[in-house]
Design a protein around this nucleic acid. Sequence first.
DNA 1: GGAAACATACCGGCTGGTCGGTATCTTCGC
DNA 2: GCGAAGATACCGACCAGCCGGTATGTTTCC
Lengths: 191, 191
Amino acid sequence: MFPAPVSLANQRKKEPDVVRQKLLDCAAQILVDRGLANLTVQAVAEAAGVTKGGLLHHFASKQKLTEALFAEQLRILDGEIDAAMSADPVAHGRFTRAYVRSTLRVEQTGPCPCAALSVSTLIDPALRQAWGDWYKERLNRHRETDGDLALQLVRYAADGVWLEDLMAQDGESPIDRQALLSKMIDLTRKR
Amino acid sequence: MFPAPVSLANQRKKEPDVVRQKLLDCAAQILVDRGLANLTVQAVAEAAGVTKGGLLHHFASKQKLTEALFAEQLRILDGEIDAAMSADPVAHGRFTRAYVRSTLRVEQTGPCPCAALSVSTLIDPALRQAWGDWYKERLNRHRETDGDLALQLVRYAADGVWLEDLMAQDGESPIDRQALLSKMIDLTRKR
DNA sequence: GGAAACATACCGGCTGGTCGGTATCTTCGC
DNA sequence: GCGAAGATACCGACCAGCCGGTATGTTTCC
């Protein structure tokens, strides 16, 4: 009478929070390793084992999805930075060191949230604005310890590094990441 | 009998080289200030005063168009770097200084070719590869003068700066670009 | 039973791309 | 010099496919 469902998500246990989170995770994954152009609601839904309609139930539009994705990644980054800062006894350049450690993350594996963050920033002016606001706020909060131009330069370098990460993508890092990190941390302690 | 043409390009003087160049210019312009998502063959053709069919005559596919665009911008950047290097008497860090000057370009106006370059790099793995090859080759050529890790760091910072340019886009540069450039150039002369 | 969590079917719009035609340019015989 | 003829430049209509989004149905949870 009725056609067989292509997905069994309708018969399985309903786990709205789990599905919602999985949608976000899959979106981040697709964004990082298949590129911005391939971030379609169809692809995300499939990757999460849900139909397009299912995705649209959780996120009213693609816009809402990307906004949620962005917000989550930003929250993660923000948390990582806070954690790194509270473990750092030296005041001068504390934020910059945390920023560098969070964005380079030599020891951690998996896709850097910054990657997803920045790529989505390139698309949407609203997200761009949100990122700018976050950065400006953070910078203003740590103005006294991290206002130095030399520290700004180190932060720029950190941005450049993960940009290279985005571009390289083949897993092969041409330079010694650990040595670079040390060098950057060193630079934040000078003077 | 026959419909009136919406464009008079068919009756005007044929200037294949001019049109082809204009297509590339318009593509770069659109890429920089309207973003990657709006880089459609339709939009590029319209901006250049040509129909879609006309564009497809010059570039067999959108892929070919972006490749040509990329190649041209890379050629420009390459030339700028060569020019800057030959005007620099100091050997150590010569390439890095040229790279920084070309990518920051505090005095020049207009869209930085790097912007178009990098954005297209984010799309297409083939272009990403091409960029990587170019950079690797250049780096290898100037290994003796620019192999130092500190110089690598300065180059990363340059990447970070124009990335911020891409994101900000509102014309308002929060920091003193000239001072930053001086600082970076200084760093290449140390030791 | 009602709301939430999905699936399914479908639509309009836009995209890159094809195709056949027309207008202009270039070449070349004379 | 000039006119035919082929090549080149470009137009305009059309197509298939995919995208985001909607409307509606069906199942599960409380």
